[in-house]
């Protein structure tokens, strides 16, 4: 189990690293939200899965199995809670009139775009 755990933890930490780098580099609030809200979620879920597997490595008893389930419970809690917080903060920012950074200045467009527009 231990090698799988090492691989999972490394991938998870790498995702968290890329999230932090994006968090520092992106130009405005909304794009920063993309990198920190998502990469961190996937990173945490992968890291916690790896740790739960590593916990089973010392011998499969009932107690250690329950501890692994608890670690997975945290991962599931995070999976449900993190998008909610992301949505709440983004919505609050949008309602308090923080302008999104765009290239052409039109921040809200209908989707899918009209036929004439794409020509």
């Amino acid at each position: 189990m231990a090698p799988v755990a090492v691989v999972l933890i490394s991938i998870g930490v790498f995702f968290m690293f890329s999230g932090t780098i994006g968090f520092l580099r992106f130009p405005d609030f909304f794009t920063r939200m993309h990198s920190t809200g998502k990469s961190d979620t996937l990173g945490i879920v992968l890291t916690l899965t790896g740790l739960a597997l590593y916990n089973l490595d010392h011998g499969l008893t009932l107690a250690s199995f329950l501890v692994s389930l608890k670690i997975m419970f945290i991962a599931i809690f995070w999976f449900a809670g993190s998008p909610t917080v992301t949505h709440a903060i983004t919505r609050a920012a949008f309602k308090s009139k923080i302008e999104p950074w765009t290239k052409d200045g039109r921040s809200v467009i209908d989707w899918p775009p009209d036929k004439e527009e794409t020509k």
């Binding site: 809690f77 449900a80 809670g81 909610t84 949505h87 709440a88």
Partner: peptide
Amino acid sequence: ENIIIRTICRILIPA
């Protein structure tokens, strides 16, 4: 009025 926050909180409060 926000559906997402209301539903998720409803599920998480008992836990």
